[in-house]
Design a protein around this nucleic acid. Structure first.
Lengths: 147, 147
DNA sequence: CGGGAATGCTCCGTGTACTGACGATTCTTT
DNA sequence: AAAGAATCGTCAGTACACGGAGCATTCCCG
């Protein structure tokens, strides 16, 4: 009797948004490479020779998930993972030629996909949505870090 | 060099938002029962004797995931899963007494959590955020259904 | 310099989330 | 009534996502 309206719950909406995006990504951008994988490739483009922990901080993936994603990309030959000779605890990551090529292709198609994804919104609404999500996510992530 | 700013990508923001919510949920609402599990319990409160497929449509989980989530809740004794005598393909789901009790407790704590989650936003902004997400998600889900 | 603390990674267990293949059941159409 | 189509659920495989335990390495302090 005390049932609640899930349509007003941000958590439920966040999950739906994320699921909808994943589905659209797989049809419009790539079936092989996922959105988190693209985030990793993209970070490696701007910061070569990064280690897994720092990479995880940038793309917001925990140490375990980074290891998984990186392992998959390495298996496909899109990046190299080498033990850092200067610090034997770290893995140094770097894109291969092929990885850079894959990133280029995905970056282009991602732009197109974003257009489709946000199509129901006016320009001002798109900026508002992204800004609001960023503020909520930033605040929640700060709570986590303070621990 | 062609690296992209992930902060402007709705997919990346959607993932961050969902992750942040999951984390906050586990600290403020429950460690045992997840947000999707609550969505299932909640649907069973308003619609007893529902089958898994219909349930999945309501909470936006595919058939496999529904089966997983329902199995976990059944294992904990929060719901009963019985073969429908009128249609041998379906499982009929119904909350147990304990399941109803768990739902009551979660519903209260969920309200409190939503307040914390949306704390960085003004009232008008909260409504705007939820409305914008719903529009984008609705549109994307329609694309999927049309298949 | 030497020993304890901190750090980076891996491995394991659990929980979403989806697709494809399959089996059982029911429905439809003739 | 029987063949074929549609439906519901399960199972296997893959990919994120997280916490805890454990290991090797490095850092820091006395």
């Amino acid at each position: 009797m005390a049932a609640v309206d899930l349509g007003a719950h941000p958590g439920h909406l966040a999950r739906r948004l994320q699921q909808a995006h994943t589905l659209l990504w797989s049809t419009l951008v790539s079936e092989e490479t996922t959105s988190p994988q693209f985030a990793v490739l993209n970070t490696l483009v701007e910061t070569p020779d990064i280690d897994q922990r720092t990479l995880g901080e940038r793309v917001r993936l925990d140490r375990s998930t980074v290891a998984d994603v990186v392992a998959r990309l390495a298996r496909r030959g899109l990046l190299e993972r080498v033990r850092d000779p200067l610090d034997g605890r770290r893995n140094v990551l770097r894109l291969t030629m092929e990885g850079a090529g894959v990133h280029r292709g995905l970056a282009a198609r991602t732009e197109a996909m974003n257009e489709v994804f946000l199509a129901p919104l006016e320009q001002a609404e798109r900026e508002a949505l992204l800004g609001l999500i960023a503020r909520v996510a930033d605040a929640a992530e700060k709570v986590r870090d303070r621990r």
